[in-house]
Every structure is written in C-alpha cells, then in structure tokens.
Simulated scan of single mutants.
Amino acid sequence: MPTPITRKGYEALKAELDRLHKVERPRVIEAIAEARAHGDLSENAEYDAAKERQGFIEARLAELKGKLADCRIIDIAGRTSETVVFGATVVLIEQEAQAKKQYTLVGQDEADLKFSRISVQSPVGRALIGKRVGDMVEVTTPAKIVEYEVMEIRFEEL
C-alpha cells in the first residue's frame, strides 16, 4: 500500500536524497581517501569516523530511495471536504480543558509537532479520519482518554 505524502513532503525527501548523493557522499569518499593517505588504518580515528559516516549516508540513501518509490503524492491544493481526510487542517477543542488545538494531517515523514503537523497514522490522526465538524473524537493516550470536538476542517497550502 503506497504511503501518502504531500507534494512539499515529497520534494523535501527528494532534496535530501540529492544532497546526500551529490554533496555528502563525495565529501565522505574524499575524507576516506585522505585518511587512507595517513597510513596505518588500524589506529586511524579519522578513517574509522569517515567509514562510519559513509555507512550512515549509504543507509539513509537506501531508505530515502525506498520511501520515494513507495509514496503517493496527494495534492491538497484547492481541495475541500466535509470530512477529515489526509492533508486537512483540523481545529479541535479538547473537552476537559476547553483548550483549542490545531493539527494538519500529513505523511509519516512530514510529521512535526512543533508545526502542528501530525501523521495520519498517529493515534490522533487515525481517530480524526472521516470525522465531520461537530463530531466528538476519543483518543486513547498512555495516561487517559482525551475527548475532542471537531470545530473546523480546512485545507491550506503547506
């Protein structure tokens, strides 16, 4: 099943892939060559660090290639819906504290709580899918069950 992602999220993953491939990989290859030139590799900390960095870069490149191959871009520009779907920005009122919260439902790799972007696969994201304005939503957290009321559903460019 393809993983949903916004166009902006896809572009960010693609940019990271390009940067790793065109900048970071050549830089670490150069660092390895330079460390090799210093001689004995058995006690060469620079060589070990460069090889470790190379392993990280190669693993991340493989991960990004897999994610990009498995994702499906969901275009949210101009979208409207009366129910919460991927890409929606949802305004909620937490019932116990009467606190207003706002979340935008995005793909797993785009989730960033400091920007109020939550994964559509998170417990809150899963609970919100399909809800309408006025609906009550229960989310089970490790500490308690939190109840929200959906106040607004809108779509905005991320």
Rank of each mutant, 00 (worst) to 15 (best):
A15E: 15
A77C: 03
A77K: 03
A69T: 10
L105N: 10
V84S: 05
I129L: 12
V85N: 11
T140Y: 10
A59L: 01
Y47E: 09
V146I: 09
K51H: 03
A62Y: 08
G87M: 05
E30R: 12
I93D: 15
R132F: 08
I118C: 03
F86E: 00
Q108V: 00
L113M: 10
V120G: 00
N44G: 01
A77Y: 04
T6N: 04
E147D: 14
R79N: 03
G125K: 13
E16F: 01
A12I: 09
E152T: 05
Y10H: 13
Y103N: 05
G39M: 03
L61Q: 12
I5Y: 04
A99H: 04
I145L: 04
T141E: 06
K14H: 13
A143V: 07
E58W: 00
S81D: 11
V84C: 00
A99R: 11
R7S: 05
P123M: 12
A59S: 01
A62R: 13
L20F: 00
L13T: 07
G130C: 11
Q121A: 15
R7Q: 06
A33M: 04
R53K: 09
E94W: 02
P4H: 13
D109E: 08
A50T: 09
P26M: 02
I29A: 12
E82A: 10
I57W: 02
G55L: 02
V150F: 06
I57G: 01
A33G: 12
I93T: 14
T89A: 15
V23E: 15
R7Y: 01
T89L: 10
M136V: 10
E138M: 07
R154W: 04
V139E: 12
R7I: 02
E16W: 00
V120T: 02
I29K: 12
I76Q: 06
Q98I: 03
L64C: 06
D112Y: 05
E138C: 07
Q54V: 06
V106I: 02
G39H: 06
Q98P: 02
I74Y: 00
L128F: 01
K114M: 11
E46L: 04
T3Y: 08
E43D: 12
E43P: 00
A33Y: 07
D70P: 04
E30M: 09
Q102S: 15
E94C: 05
F56W: 02
P2K: 06
K101Q: 05
A59P: 00
P4V: 13
L158P: 00
L113A: 13
M151A: 14
K67M: 02
M136C: 14
K14R: 11
E43F: 03
F86C: 01
A45H: 14
I76L: 08
H38D: 15
I93V: 15
H38A: 15
V91S: 13
T83F: 05
R25K: 13
A88W: 02
H21A: 09
E96W: 04
K65N: 01
R132N: 12
C71E: 01
R36T: 09
V137Q: 10
L17C: 06
A143Q: 10
A69G: 12
A15K: 08
E63H: 03
E43M: 10
L128G: 03
R53I: 08
R60E: 02
V106T: 08
D70S: 06
T80Y: 08
I76E: 08
L113R: 13
P123T: 09
I153T: 06
A15W: 11
A37N: 09
G78H: 03
L13N: 13
